[in-house]
Design a protein around this nucleic acid. Structure first.
Length: 171
DNA sequence: AGGATGATGAAG
DNA sequence: TTCATCATCCTA
């Protein structure tokens, strides 16, 4: 069993978001995003990695949250077996592709229900104060690159991208 | 039927 | 910074 604390996510809202895979409508790949909420949307990226999303809106409305990084909590030995011996704790699930590899997520998991499968998201044991969550632009996209829809636990060494410690004051 | 493009990662 | 690597989607 593997587990971790989600420390970095990105939101994709098809209706108003050109960066969403579902912006141009339903396709074979993105069909999970149009399904009921609480399921996962898993897809292949760059021909070699997979990324995992949580579907968030009602059936028919495509919207999802990409899980980008975890702070590993349990099963680190299993994660390392999947990711490679010698991989540092910090690198086990830092990045969406690595996260899936560490958890053993594959395309087979696409569409799985988080409420009735062996893959789920637990209630937080400790609430995170809003002030500790930073909103930044999303990573690796070209369209709608300015929207601050990446959410990261401030200062977490387990988050990908540039290390952020504080809110950037708006100009 | 074919070409361009990625919600990345690893190595140098 | 470069490149590996290919499913998916768009255009024709």
């Amino acid at each position: 069993m593997t587990a971790g604390i989600i420390v970095e996510t990105e939101a994709y809202v098809a209706a108003i978001d050109p960066a969403s895979h579902a912006y141009r409508g339903r396709t074979q790949r993105n069909r999970s995003m149009f399904g009921p909420p609480g399921r996962v949307y898993v897809y292949t990226i760059y021909g070699m990695h997979v990324c995992m999303n949580v579907v968030t809106e009602a059936e028919g409305t495509a919207s999802a949250v990409l899980l980008r990084a975890l702070e590993p909590v349990a099963g680190l030995d299993i994660m390392r077996a999947r990711r490679g011996v010698g991989v540092k704790d910090r690198d086990l699930a830092r990045g969406p592709g690595r996260l899936c590899q560490a958890l053993g997520i594959t395309l087979v998991d696409d569409g799985h229900d988080l409420l009735s499968s062996n893959l789920w998201i637990a209630n937080p044991t400790d609430a995170v104060e809003d002030r500790r969550v930073l909103a930044t632009p999303r990573i690796g996209i070209t369209r709608a690159a300015d929207l601050p829809w990446r959410f990261v636990l401030a200062g977490s060494p387990f988050a990908s991208g540039r290390r952020t410690t504080s809110r950037t004051p708006s100009p």
